[in-house]
């Protein structure tokens, strides 16, 4: 009796799922799927920004959008398979953490269009690599930090120490050095993109050593950095999106990385039938990278000097360092 009941119930469940699945298939534009890295949506940063591009594409291009959040790195490949099975016209894998899975996925499904944000490590004819010159935007907020510090001690809190995050670090250090050679930059890495408590402790430690402006490139740890700034009354600099809404009185400005522009453009390519593999680098020149100050905390003279530096970078007067080597050789 119990067994029969169990069978009936599971059948009901299966039919229920099929029914739901059927209901979702409204005849509309192509389906595009975003797969987030373990940071997930709600980071008020990288993944949210990518999703914003999807939402814009939904209204402007009439595509169907879907997001799959990865709980662990073991989920990347299964999530890619799920997206392929759902019939996605384009799968956007968000983040360098997904490079390996994207490579495998692209080989397994050679006819499927993929876009990989933030990494050029996965290469295949059906992968479009969307990368950014984060060092350029970081340079600009470095200029802002150098102008606003009173102690001449500035902090940088990174997530996991990877070449990508080092682009933020060295670009930032170069900006500080260019605008205020006397200022010292403290460097910390939390080795996590989700442990907010660790972000806070790292920022508090830097503040204790005198840092009064702290730039973070640490995903979900960043909320801890901003919280510390509020408690100890110093400046935090946000990353990826304008993070001033989290604490308008303590977020000085943010390094903006228009992941939304990147995802939107990739979707547009598919809609226009122009998708092809390869690489695209967003930079200051095409507004894919920038510095933003929605809360209006930057004085006019600092804004002006940021503009001057931006001009120089866009005109190619010098190359912004992005790793230890280029930074060591950096001089103006």
């Amino acid at each position: 009796m119990k067994k029969a009941l169990a069978i009936v119930l599971s059948l009901l469940l299966v039919f229920g799922m099929v029914a739901c699945g059927g209901g979702a298939e409204v005849e509309e534009g192509p389906l595009v799927v975003l797969i987030t890295d373990t940071g997930g949506l709600g980071d008020e940063s990288f993944n949210d920004s990518a999703w914003a591009g999807f939402q814009r594409a939904e209204t402007e291009l009439g595509v169907q959008i879907q997001v799959i959040e990865s709980a662990t790195s073991d989920d990347y490949l299964p999530n890619i398979s799920a997206a392929v099975e759902a019939g996605a016209a384009l799968i956007i894998c968000n983040g360098f953490l997904m490079a390996e899975a994207t490579q495998q996925g692209a080989e397994q499904y050679p006819d499927q269009a993929f876009a990989l944000v933030d990494s050029a490590d996965a290469q295949a004819p059906n992968i479009l690599n969307l990368t950014f010159n984060e060092q350029e935007g970081s340079f600009l907020v470095g200029v802002a930090a150098a102008a606003m510090t009173e102690s001449n001690v500035i902090g940088f809190v990174g997530g996991i120490q990877l070449p990508l995050i080092e682009k933020f670090q060295f670009g930032f250090q170069a900006g500080v050095k260019a605008a205020n050679p006397d200022a010292q930059v403290l460097i910390n890495y939390t080795q996590s993109f989700s442990d907010s408590a660790l972000g806070k402790e790292n920022a508090l430690a830097q503040n204790k050593l005198g840092a009064d402006v702290i730039y973070h490139a640490s995903g979900g740890c960043g909320i801890g950095v901003i919280q510390a700034a509020g408690e100890q009354d110093f400046w935090a600099i946000g990353v990826d999106q304008d993070q001033s809404a989290l604490d308008p009185d303590h977020v000085l400005c943010s390094m903006i990385k228009r992941v939304d522009v990147a995802t939107f453009n990739a979707i547009k390519m598919v809609v226009d039938g122009e998708f092809e593999g390869g690489g695209y680098v967003f930079s200051l020149a095409d507004e894919g990278i920038g510095a933003g100050d929605e809360a209006g905390n930057l004085p006019a003279d600092v804004l002006a000097s940021i503009e001057v530096w931006k001009e120089k970078i866009v005109n190619g007067e010098f190359e912004v360092p992005y790793d230890a080597n280029t930074f060591a050789n950096f001089s103006l």
């Binding site: 940071g39 997930g40 709600g42 907010s196 408590a197 806070k200 979900g220 909320i223």
Partner: peptide
């Protein structure tokens, strides 16, 4: 202690 005692919000994965 981790949420309202440290950062004042809940984030997925914050228990880490």
């Amino acid at each position: 202690c981790l949420s309202i005692g440290t950062v004042g919000l809940f984030r997925e994965g914050m228990v880490a």
